[in-house]
Design a protein around this nucleic acid. Structure first.
Lengths: 188, 188
DNA sequence: GTCTATACATGGATAGAC
DNA sequence: GTCTATCCATGTATAGAC
């Protein structure tokens, strides 16, 4: 990988973290450049605008998500085990969720208020996630409509608890809920 | 009410709407002043800082919430009917939720990432809501712990669906979920 | 490809006339 | 109490030397 891509990657990585920890709107190009150890003016060689950085960040997140899903698909033969891995994954990030919220959820919340192109960006991440969960429920023998309903239920449950976790700075909320969702999954 | 309070109220009202529709961070004092039809410089006679406006907005929202709860407490003798009113209330705002998210939820999401005093501001609104719902479950004969669990479940469900509603710009998500929650409430 | 210097707009906040 | 003018910091983006 060329040095050029290395710098670009550092910028995307830094932007990803800062956007998560602060919100996109309040993250400045100076913040990103500093964290990536790239001079401010040089940022514009890699990205025409701040929005372009956001797009790159979302693309990156989408790829990370895809990788995660693919891993679980390969690692577990049973759809229930995959969904369990998905639920347990949220436990691992309980502490950071208590500090900054859900990475995907908070971006959807922020960009959802925008009008225009950026508005749909984060929605694609949510859509991807929803689709994967839905396909797992279909693999469990649920019909199209039921699978869709269950997927929305699971995702919205996790998103709701993530918000409470952030609001009250209490990671145990996610931990307890995950247990409940695992039981719910067993019965579903 | 004096003319002074009238102007102040207009500012708080305008700030409330704009903070909801845009986020606190991206709402400027000029925005607020314009919407309230108050000259920019005059804003500082009523509020020392932008943060102070936010505090006033949260206080106002807290009062509105209190009024809502008091109304339901008086209007319905049965706790189940009160909770039903609470659930149905979210249906009424489904369309605006699809555009801007949940008023309380989006503020909690944004301020939750802050450090310092502002971080706890929105949490108080959530806390107030949680407490009221919890007390209704207690009135239904649930013990302290069960009531707390059920309250968190109800609130987080609604918050999660609000986020999906915003993300996919689909008010019907709230409508369907509300039906489900009413059924759940019947069985609880 | 890289980086410094800087243009230009915006936003929070203040001074001070009325 | 009210409002205009303005200060000053910050933020996005560009020009142009290296």
């Amino acid at each position: 990988m060329s040095r050029k891509n290395d710098k670009r990657n550092r910028l995307v990585e830094a932007a990803n973290d800062l956007i998560y920890q602060q919100t996109f709107n309040s993250t400045t190009l100076a913040d990103i450049a500093t964290k990536a150890e790239v001079p401010l003016g040089n940022v514009y060689y890699y990205f025409k605008t701040k929005d372009d950085i956001l797009k790159a960040v979302v693309l990156k997140r989408s790829a990370v998500l895809q990788e995660l899903f693919t891993t679980w698909d390969q690692q577990f033969a049973q759809a229930k085990d995959r969904l369990r891995a998905f639920i347990r994954h949220s436990i691992e990030s309980a502490d950071t969720t208590a500090r900054f919220g859900c990475e995907m959820g908070s971006l959807c919340q922020e960009l959802g208020k925008y009008s225009g192109e950026l508005s749909h960006l984060a929605a694609e991440l949510m859509h991807k996630t929803l689709n994967w969960v839905e396909s797992q429920f279909k693999a469990l023998g649920k019909n199209e409509e039921t699978a869709s309903t269950l997927a929305k239920y699971l995702i919205s449950s996790m998103q709701g608890v993530s918000l409470l976790t952030l609001t009250f700075k209490d990671p145990s909320l996610i931990q307890r809920q995950s247990k409940n969702l695992e039981n719910w999954l067993e019965a579903a």
